[in-house]
């Protein structure tokens, strides 16, 4: 009897050898394009907090890091610095504490991309060591000289009464600052009252606002980049907030709770009056009562 649906082994082999090179080529080209993009990937994911030669920002200067640490260690740190610290790695803990215990966000980009970044850092480090610039440890803060108008603009951008020109959400949605006249800010992300000094002056804030490295913030500002004048104004405002911490009166954080309870009272009163003429007993109450009595 003839078997109709029997696969033809020769045909399968042929197809397999036909597809193998094509698939292989695509996979190779994907990894090849990634390999070339080390610098771009670095700019997109790392440059908010790191430089390669030229001093520290929020995080350390990465010049020479590829020779100082093994690739395995670097990969663990990049994937999840907190996991590495929790595993008891003394070096990781020391670095974390040296940089004001600001957590580096876990990176979820492919291994190939991370390796491309390492290659880029290694290449750049060689050039950087030749120049070997000595970097001043004190943070440079041009924003300290900002005019009151710029600070006011920064405040308005922060609370949202001046909208960010590219449609990004106002900072107050997720961040709090203690500043007279500013309502309590959001609590989803870090309090920014002392952010200016915590992030090492202007550079840290400029870096983070220029290319937000934290996933939720990246998502919020995707395609809605904050413009340079806006970043400058916000930096000036945060500098002012940080310097004046002691003099600021934070508004009551219980506003939401008290307001909510008051609102609940209002809703209950409204329900009471709107349904005042309702039938207050069940239709068959008398029947049920009588039957319960008879049990």
């Amino acid at each position: 009897m003839k078997q109709v649906n029997k696969p033809n082994p020769q045909y399968m082999r042929k197809t397999f050898f036909f597809f193998l090179p094509i698939t292989g080529f695509f996979l190779f080209s994907i990894s090849a394009t990634h390999a070339q993009d080390g610098e771009a990937i670095f700019k997109q994911n790392c440059s908010a907090c790191h430089k390669v030669g030229g001093g520290r920002l929020v995080g350390p200067d990465l010049a020479g890091v590829t020779t100082k640490r093994t690739e395995e260690w670097l990969m663990k740190w990049t994937r999840s610095s907190q996991a590495l610290i929790k595993s008891g790695d003394a070096d990781a803990k020391a670095i974390y504490e040296e940089y004001s215990s600001i957590m580096m966000p876990d990176q979820t980009i492919p291994n190939g991309d991370i390796k491309a970044i390492y290659t880029f850092i290694a290449g750049k480090s060689e050039a950087a060591t030749v120049a070997a610039p000595t970097v001043a440890e004190t943070p440079v803060s041009a924003s300290a000289n900002a005019t009151p108008e710029v600070i006011e603009l920064g405040k308005n951008l922060f609370i949202g009464s001046n909208a960010l020109s590219n449609g990004g959400v106002a900072c107050i949605a997720c961040h709090n600052v203690n500043y007279t006249g500013v309502i309590p800010g959001g609590l989803l992300a870090k309090d920014l009252t002392t952010a200016h000094s915590r992030l090492g002056g202007d550079a840290g804030i400029l870096g983070i606002l220029g290319a937000p490295p934290f996933p939720a913030m990246t998502q919020a500002y995707k395609g809605k980049t904050i413009t340079e004048p806006e970043i400058a104004a916000l930096t000036a405002f945060l500098n002012k907030v940080d310097k004046d911490t002691a003099n600021q009166v934070a508004s009551s954080p219980y506003l939401l709770l008290y307001g909510g309870i008051g609102g609940l009272g209002g809703i209950l009163i409204l329900i009471y009056f709107l349904w005042f003429a309702r039938k207050k007993e069940t239709v068959k109450k008398d029947i049920y009562d009588r039957q319960l009595k008879s049990i």
Binding site: G160, G168, V169, A170, I172, A173, C174, P184, G185, G186, L187, L188, A216, Q219, A220, L256
Partner: peptide
């Protein structure tokens, strides 16, 4: 707090 803003964002 201010979920109405960050939800949208």
């Amino acid at each position: 707090r201010w979920g109405s803003s960050w939800f949208s964002a």
